[in-house]
Design a protein around this nucleic acid. Sequence first.
DNA 1: GCCTAGGTCCCGTTG
DNA 2: CAACGGGGCCTAGGC
Lengths: 278, 278
Amino acid sequence: MVVEQLDAPDPEEVIEAAKAAFRDGAMLTVQARCEGEYEGRTSGYLGPGDRILVAKPDGTFLVHQPTGHKPVNWMPGGGTVSPRLSEGGAARGAAEESSGDEPRVAVLLARRTNPSERVEARILDAHGLTRFDASDGASYEESGTEAEMHEYIEQNPAVLEEGLRIVEHERETKYGFIDFFARDADGVPVVVEVKRIQATLNHFDQLQRYVSLYEESEASPRGGGVTAGNEEVRGLLVAPSASERVRRALRDNDLEFVELGEFGTDAKGATEAKLTDF
Amino acid sequence: MVVEQLDAPDPEEVIEAAKAAFRDGAMLTVQARCEGEYEGRTSGYLGPGDRILVAKPDGTFLVHQPTGHKPVNWMPGGGTVSPRLSEGGAARGAAEESSGDEPRVAVLLARRTNPSERVEARILDAHGLTRFDASDGASYEESGTEAEMHEYIEQNPAVLEEGLRIVEHERETKYGFIDFFARDADGVPVVVEVKRIQATLNHFDQLQRYVSLYEESEASPRGGGVTAGNEEVRGLLVAPSASERVRRALRDNDLEFVELGEFGTDAKGATEAKLTDF
DNA sequence: GCCTAGGTCCCGTTG
DNA sequence: CAACGGGGCCTAGGC
């Protein structure tokens, strides 16, 4: 039996099922009216409403409202989720006298350290619960990533500029990592920053940072005098597109934009076609 | 009835339940062995395995493996999820001759435009399905945010520096927004960038950009000559902490770091305590 | 463990 | 609508 479903379980049944699921490494899904509370990097409270709760064996905990991609409350994996019975009533608000006839509610508490934080979901009314003994060995394989774009450029530097020669990939500097360090046809050093998506001001910032770093660390040690220094390093921002503001920022700072959209098989085919032209 | 559960539904039942749920604006959860495929900003494939599928009435679609905070495949809200029956067999791979006795499988296809993309989950084996007519009017209320940090600083500028006077909050420049524009005790202009979390190199970048922008736009128009220009603007990065690299980048570029961790009631109390010291 | 940078980032806000 | 910046971002890769 891979899945076990409970319909409208009472608090004790929720606790029991949750304990068993966590013990056995199963995934748990609960449809419930609940409250949420978070305390950690910030703190927050979510009033009662219908949500889906998901707890994974790695400690991941998710609270999903009926809209939106992101969980309204969550805990990343690495911590633990523990079920416990608690007094009824609101998590927040005045502590009313606990009359004996108050219903107890099931609570799912997710915690972790570093950073220290916790999410608590008070299940006021469990509509459905599913235990799922899931087994999944597959991993997602993706193409079209920035890593592939890097590979493509490394193999075909001419798509950026005729005569460009890649010297180093992922060069570390004291201010961060440069995507490519290269030299142009005249041997002038070129700092290259590559983005898979439309370039933003932050990307311009990064390139600017790397270029100034290069100017400082390379020009100064030379003793200053032989080379012009600042003039002798170029900065290239490579991306499929860029807003006008970004283009202007680049121009104003003597940096260059290279539009590179398609890459991979198509572009490779184009390169091969080129070769046959000779 | 808020929740309807099906145990090991066959493909036709999955389709039927999904159609009904989407028509009525209910949330749908399916525990299933499935394949996943994404095509859009990148493209990717996920082989068969056990996952939880969640479809929301706003078009959000999530595929969750047994580990990890993030869905392995997803579609943000705004699009549509449509169920349909399809041929059995792998989504990827050679198109085998479709012998008549192949089982048909339920497929959930999530699509949107702008960007144009789609996620397809081929449900090879549905273990469980839950329809949830959820109603949730609550929204999450959070404190400890950067906005609150801004308010606090605006009310207590002295925590940054004695004699600092806030001139403007969220000043727009042609290259972006400055958190605070201020003047120090000597009337020297100060650009302030505030971060709620540990400062990163990108945050340094932002401040550096704003400061250079200020130097250009303010110093140049003046005709250059009266004021020293570059020397006469300070940049402050305010955050609870910063790595050594970030501190060095700031120092090397004549920018300043101000450590500001606690704020709000505690810090306010500290300020008040200080006042009583006089 | 910290630091750095990417992400199918998502999301809100503003022009 | 694009664009810019925040996020309890999360996650992977180095060191």
